[in-house]
Amino acid sequence: MNAENAKAQMRKGVLELCILSILSRGDSYTTDLINQLKNEEMLVVEGTLYPLLTRQKNAGLLSYRWEESPQGPPRKYYALTPKGEEYLKQLEEGWDKLVKTVNAIRSNDK
């Protein structure tokens, strides 16, 4: 048992929700997404994000387009699809319920 490990598992579990949530506020280029998640300490290693984004895209939750960048090669911009919005709504409900339940259990404990 290791607290750091458990915390990493928790972050991993809600990372999907966080990606969709950030994209629901507007389209984003992968590096912006990484920077936001890192600022909030949701992402420890950047590589975690890529398989997840590709899976979400394949599931029809995200779409992407290429945009020219002022410096360097074109950038991949991700956007939430209507299906993704629906999915995000479900995850948000699940999250709210989870937080409520956990808080209820913790306050009963004391």
Partner: peptide, 17 residues
């Protein structure tokens, strides 16, 4: 992963950055 080439391309692009 069925799309591992795509994932690798994205990761390579990030490493390039």
């Amino acid at each position: 992963e069925p799309d591992r080439r795509e994932i690798m391309n994205d990761i390579e692009a990030r490493i390039a950055e």
